[in-house]
């Protein structure tokens, strides 16, 4: 039992007869209850998130000597991570793929969210429920599915050949960057739809009527009122998609071929086959820092566009 729980327990189970004492302790009691409530999550985060992160950070300053680790402080791993052209290429490619996936996902998600928010009058919950259906199967299965669809003898190629549109199977659709982008975009679409839907459905309809009343046609109205007010949702969607896709390694591994490899794949190699955990750690920390910096920038830019007066 944590210190917080020990302090909280007697207050939480106080009998009604001791109400007055309880009121006297209310402030302390509420704070303690709050701690009690967050403590499982907090412990979980501490053990499974903060501790491993700290370990990775430490590891990145050490050196691998075949079987044991040399624990003298060094920046050599970072030097290698930031200067080796291979890592730079993979990092830039990861950012480019995630960037494209993010843009595509948001662009594809927006009309769906817009439709549900503005044109579905009944059964809105059902629509949202249907949108989440792809999540009922595992992520891995969905990636394999794309392999089946996009493969050399896959569904798409067979169909196109059968239709007589092509004679030889297309090869640029599997085991390269395009396949990674396609698969990730499909996998993350629902994550983007929901925050945009929430932002859109919160817009007061009279604001849209006011814009129309003041002379705006549908297109102008969209760009002057709807989009700026949906900006927080669009931004949330972008971050939700961008942050995890940069570090994705399952999709590039399965459908990316060698042209589609991303930074996470090389990190995995460092921790595994290459047996250089410190270099892998340095690469991880570096890519985390880069993603964090880009996300912060996105947030700041979005805040300037979306909420000047809020």
């Amino acid at each position: 039992m944590s210190a917080a729980e020990e302090r909280a327990a007697p207050v939480a189970y106080i009998s009604p007869r001791r109400r007055s004492r309880r009121i006297a302790n209310a402030l302390r009691g509420e704070a303690a209850q709050g701690l009690l409530l967050v403590s499982p999550t907090f412990l979980y985060a501490l053990v499974l998130l903060a501790a491993p992160l700290a370990l990775v950070l430490l590891l990145s300053f050490w050196t691998q000597n075949y079987l044991e680790i040399d624990r003298t402080f060094t920046l050599a791993n970072y030097r290698e991570a930031w200067t080796d052209p291979l890592y730079r290429l993979l990092m830039l490619r990861s950012l480019a793929i995630s960037g494209i996936v993010t843009v595509l996902t948001v662009i594809l998600a927006f009309p769906i969210a817009y439709f549900v928010a503005f044109h579905v009058k009944r059964n809105r919950a059902l629509w949202l429920f249907l949108i989440t259906i792809p999540f009922w199967t595992s992520y891995l299965l969905r990636v394999f599915l794309w392999k089946v669809i996009l493969g050399y003898n896959g569904v798409l190629n067979s169909a196109l050949i059968w239709l007589g549109l092509i004679e030889e199977p297309l090869t640029f659709i599997l085991y390269d960057v395009n396949a990674v982008i396609l698969t990730l975009t499909h996998a993350w679409a629902p994550f983007a739809i929901l925050p945009i839907y929430v932002a859109l459905s919160r817009i007061d309809r009279s604001l849209l009527e006011a814009a129309e009343d003041l002379g705006d046609g549908p297109l102008r109205r969209f760009f002057r009122v709807t989009l700026p007010l949906a900006m927080p949702g669009v931004l949330a969607a972008a971050l939700i998609v961008f942050i995890p896709t940069v570090g994705d390694y399952v999709t590039p591994r399965l459908v990316g071929g060698s042209d589609g490899l991303m930074i996470a794949n090389i990190i995995q190699v460092q921790f595994g086959k290459a047996n250089d955990a410190p270099l892998g750690a340095a690469l991880s920390v570096s890519s985390m820092a880069i993603v964090a910096a880009i996300s912060l920038m996105l947030l700041l830019v979005g805040r300037r566009i979306g909420g000047a007066s809020r």
Partner: peptide, 12 residues
């Protein structure tokens, strides 16, 4: 032109 009951002032 209309003055709306909720005023419909653009928040942004």
């Amino acid at each position: 032109n209309m003055v709306f009951q909720s005023y419909a002032i653009f928040p942004h």
